[in-house]
Nucleic acid binder design. Sequence first.
DNA 1: CGTTGCATAGCAACTCGTTGCATAGTACGG
DNA 2: CCGTACTATGCAACGAGTTGCTATGCAACG
Lengths: 180, 180
Amino acid sequence: MALEHAILVSLAEKSASGYDLARRFDASIGHFWKASHQQIYKVLGRMESDKWVEAHLVEQSGRPDKKVYAITGEGRAELMRWSSTPTPIETYRSEFAVKLRGLRFGDRDAVLSDVRARREAHVAQLAYYEASAAKHYPDPSAVGDDELGAYLVLRAGFMQEQTGIAWCDEILQAFGVAER
Amino acid sequence: MALEHAILVSLAEKSASGYDLARRFDASIGHFWKASHQQIYKVLGRMESDKWVEAHLVEQSGRPDKKVYAITGEGRAELMRWSSTPTPIETYRSEFAVKLRGLRFGDRDAVLSDVRARREAHVAQLAYYEASAAKHYPDPSAVGDDELGAYLVLRAGFMQEQTGIAWCDEILQAFGVAER
DNA sequence: CGTTGCATAGCAACTCGTTGCATAGTACGG
DNA sequence: CCGTACTATGCAACGAGTTGCTATGCAACG
């Protein structure tokens, strides 16, 4: 139910083609809401029927034509309506946690490799967030009203990666394989 | 793909009926993998055809009969096989983060209520984990091998709730509405 | 005596998301 | 010139999960 709204937010910031959106979902917005291009095209179609967005064709030279979508007044109204309804608390769902929980019925070494891989992924993602923060918000105390939402979301990502790393370290320690 | 395995882990710990499993998924295991009873029954049926579990009917007095499921050798083998394949990194997906990101197109007060509600939920969940830890693992340094997985998962829950609270507090502060 | 709640098991319809595939033009390296 | 990669859009089939409904029997509440 929220991909529509993630797209609306993205289009409210800046009009874009399906392809552009797919790339945004690979980059910034996608850090907390993933979507494949197939699904984005599908949902864009529905949103166009619902009049939340409208498309106009842009002819390009040297490239395929594209359909650039822009949010409509109705789309903005929907965004506001959605924003003012309470958000259900999302359920944390982790296959890895299940695996860890079943550790005694499983393969300790494989889980260990998993932990190491996850730790690396967390470290990389943390670095990404750090760079992003340094670039866009060099002075956190001077974040403007317009950027506040995006900034706070970035902070969440940052904190979550830190927590992820700390958890991995705790697991490694418990396994008697301390990180260096 | 992982509900099967969550059920296998649960049944490896202790045989149970669909109803029992549903309650477990409301309690311990469900903190990191939710499932409704409808889905559990459906998957149990498939797992029985796959010979990962086997059921025998238990007649009860004063209550409806129940089908108690036990994990089979094949089920245990599958659990081991699954455990030794790498776990894909799960994508963090948060409707609330999307909403926050789109704050400037939305309703600030509604988001604020959301934050407060989320904070309360995190505090409650943290208290639950804390109580659970105090009860089951009074001495963290003495956690046995059999309990290690469950303990580490509990730790993850604990740390995540802490992070969640810290994030909420940061949002409240940024909104100029500090928590007391 | 009626209602609510718990224990127990399921089906049907639907939505959301993934996987795999198709198509088409351009650019670039070898 | 051939293969690969990028820009750009989409369909079809499937799988996972949710919502809503059905059914039965007992216990407890009011």
